[in-house]
Write a protein that binds this DNA or RNA. Structure first.
Length: 585
RNA sequence: GGAGGCGUGGUGCAGUGGUCUAACAUGCCUGCCUGUCACGCAGGAGAUCGCGGGUUCGACUCCCGUCGCCUCCGCCA
């Protein structure tokens, strides 16, 4: 292997095959940098050693696949190259074979290439020759191996579940596959193996896992592809605590194995309520502070009508503090105001704490003591900037939550950020967010829908609220968040038919429909179903974060574009009339 | 479905109404060069400026539409 040669190999004869990274023709002497997965080594062609090989080396170009034979030698005095791992040696070639010529590639096969992603995706097989992409794929492999090793040792059994399954209501749009044998009928590709893994619990396979492809026909993002990989787990006879501890153990071990970093356990835990109150997000980035403070109490009776009237009509007034932000220019603050307006808030009030005084466009509505109380409630001190949003509670949380992250990026408060190129992954801040609401109201559907999925168990003491006050029912659910990215989520499931039926009813599903779509599950629950629960991780996102990248496309060998197209194969594409007929389309 | 950004030799970019017969770097081709490693030196080829329409005496540049890629919102049980 090219990149592994070193001083220890001096004197030995080697045969190397690889790609030509670079040819340097000095006239009477030719150097080739030969590359394979392991790295690069310099090969020298000297006409004195083998005239034929030297002459053939003149024909060679970048990305030619060649085979070289020769002796590993120490480089002559003064020609050692300390900038590459194999820089102390070189291969004196006495034989050269061109295994395959190559056209000039459309972009450079180098680390951190600055090429249009369209090109990279069209020629993905060339993009994947680049060392950083190879590192990402190898990291992904190592992570998958570590997961399998850990879960196997913990007694989990990997079991495959069908890719051709049934379309179910709720959730994302399905990818659908027409059935030739059953005219007019369709399979759906799984959004997750949810029901199958629950049925494996019914089957007594009390610790299941699977590294499994899932499909969702929704719009794409930097961290969302139409097909993605989940690490899916399910366990019987467990409480949330058991699943979380097991998942933590897995994640911590994987991180340790592939990065050498030890992760502090147990992970920070927040209830959904706390996360929304303190961070304005159900996936809080806890790598930095700047927590949200409720200042409603200290401004309710102020002369500032925007605040007092907001509170009187059920709204909230909350604030975040930018340390040292008093020096922000008016223009910078205006930009922040535009940002929160983009998040749906009506506006942004601000107070700069300068010495004993306060500078603020709303200062005239407060007396000095009122502003001091506000600063105190917000936790601001000398030189800080208080940013205040008054609106409906959900709007305030959303706006300040996003403003908080926006500011942290802008101010460089996040360790290791700002180089999505993968140089550093920085800090890893894990946090559990527990007890999400079980249901939320969906305007479009005109009914309540499951926040997690319809098989999530309510918290015991909330069960009877299902009929009386469904939106206040909390779920036995838990999301694992890493650096503000949702890494995984799971829950304890419903394992009793009567409760599952109540859940379906709460979702506005008629009993006949429940029977038609989920009859097999309800029936299974009548045959001795153990209490069970589990979790699923987004493998692509996990690899992305550990690789320090900012798109999962960089850790997927053959990803799709934002329009869900594969630029290399041209999928999706029309099918022939004949295929259409066979499929009854 | 919506908002924004980008699209100029192979690649990365400059050019914001005429001086563009489109600059620069790199790559590519040819020649020279025996210690280079971002090799060097000399020469050369390579672009109907994403596509279509419009405004204008004149459009890479302005306007409209369209296509592609990216980011975000909606969406993602």
């Amino acid at each position: 292997m090219c990149g592994e040669l070193g001083k220890a190999d001096i004197g030995s004869r080697v045969a190397l095959a690889g790609w030509v990274q670079k040819r340097r023709d000095l006239g009477g002497l030719i150097f080739l940098d030969l590359r394979d997965r392991s790295g690069i080594v310099q090969v020298v062609f000297n006409p004195d050693l083998n005239k034929g090989a030297y002459e053939l080396a003149q024909e060679v170009r970048g990305e030619y696949v060649v085979k070289v034979e020769g002796e590993v030698t120490a480089r002559p005095e003064g020609t050692v190259n300390p900038s590459i791992p194999t820089g102390e040696v070189e291969v004196r070639a006495d034989a050269l074979e061109v295994l395959n010529a190559a056209r000039t590639p459309p972009f450079y096969i180098i680390e951190n290439v600055d090429a249009d992603e369209t090109l990279r995706l069209k020629y993905r097989y060339l993009d994947l020759r680049r060392p950083d992409m190879q590192r990402n794929l190898i990291l992904r492999h190592k992570i998958m191996m570590a997961i399998r090793r850990y879960l196997d040792a913990e007694g989990f059994v990997e079991i495959e579940t069908p890719m051709l399954t049934r379309s179910t209501p709720e959730g994302a749009r399905d990818y659908v596959v027409p059935s030739r044998v059953n005219p007019g009928c369709f399979y759906a590709l799984p959004q997750s193996p949810q029901l199958f893994k629950q049925l494996l619990m019914v089957a007594g396979m009390d610790r299941y896992f699977q590294i499994v492809r899932c499909f969702r026909d929704e719009d794409l993002r930097a961290d969302r592809q139409p097909e993605f990989t989940q690490v899916d787990m399910e366990m019987s006879f467990v409480e949330p605590e058991d699943v979380m501890m097991c998942a933590e153990g897995l994640v911590a071990e994987v991180v340790r194995e592939v990065t050498g970093l030890s992760v502090r356990r147990p992970f920070l835990r927040l209830t959904y309520r706390e996360a929304m109150d303190r961070y304005g997000s159900d996936k809080p980035d806890t790598r930095f502070g700047m927590e949200i403070k409720d200042v409603s109490g200290v401004v309710a009776d102020s002369g500032f009508k925007v605040f007092s009237e907001c509170i009187a009509s059920g709204g909230k007034v909350k604030a975040i503090v930018v340390q040292g932000g008093a020096k922000f220019s008016r223009k910078e603050i205006d930009a922040l105001a535009d940002f929160v307006k983009g998040c749906g808030a009506r506006g942004l009030a601000w107070v700069a704490v300068e010495g004993e005084r306060f500078r603020s466009p709303i200062a005239k509505f407060f007396d000095e003591a009122g502003l001091a109380r506000l600063a105190n409630a917000a936790g601001a001190s000398e030189g800080d900037l208080i940013l205040v949003v008054a609106d409906a509670p959900a709007v305030v949380s959303e706006a300040l939550g996003r403003l908080r992250v926006h500011l942290a990026r802008k101010l460089g408060l996040i360790d290791g950020e700002g180089d999505g190129g993968g140089q550093g992954r920085g800090q890893l801040a894990f946090v559990w967010v527990t007890q999400f609401p079980l249901l939320e109201y969906d305007e479009e559907e005109g009914r309540n829908v499951a926040v997690h999925h319809p098989f999530t168990s309510p918290v015991d003491e909330d069960i009877d609220l299902l009929e009386t006050d469904p939106l206040s029912v909390r779920a036995k659910s838990y999301d694992l968040v890493l650096n503000g990215v949702e890494l995984g989520g799971g829950s304890i499931r419903i394992h009793r038919r009567d409760i599952q039926e109540r859940m379906f009813r709460a979702l506005g599903m008629r009993p006949e429909e429940a029977q038609d779509k989920f009859g097999f599950l309800l029936e299974a629950f009548e045959y001795g179903t153990p209490p069970h629960g589990g979790i699923a991780f987004g493998l692509d996102r996990f690899v992305m974060l550990l690789a320090g990248r900012d798109s999962i496309r960089d850790v997927i060998a053959f990803p799709k574009t934002q329009r869900a197209v594969c630029l290399m194969t041209g999928a999706p594409a029309p099918i022939t009339d004949r295929q259409r007929q066979e499929l009854h389309l």
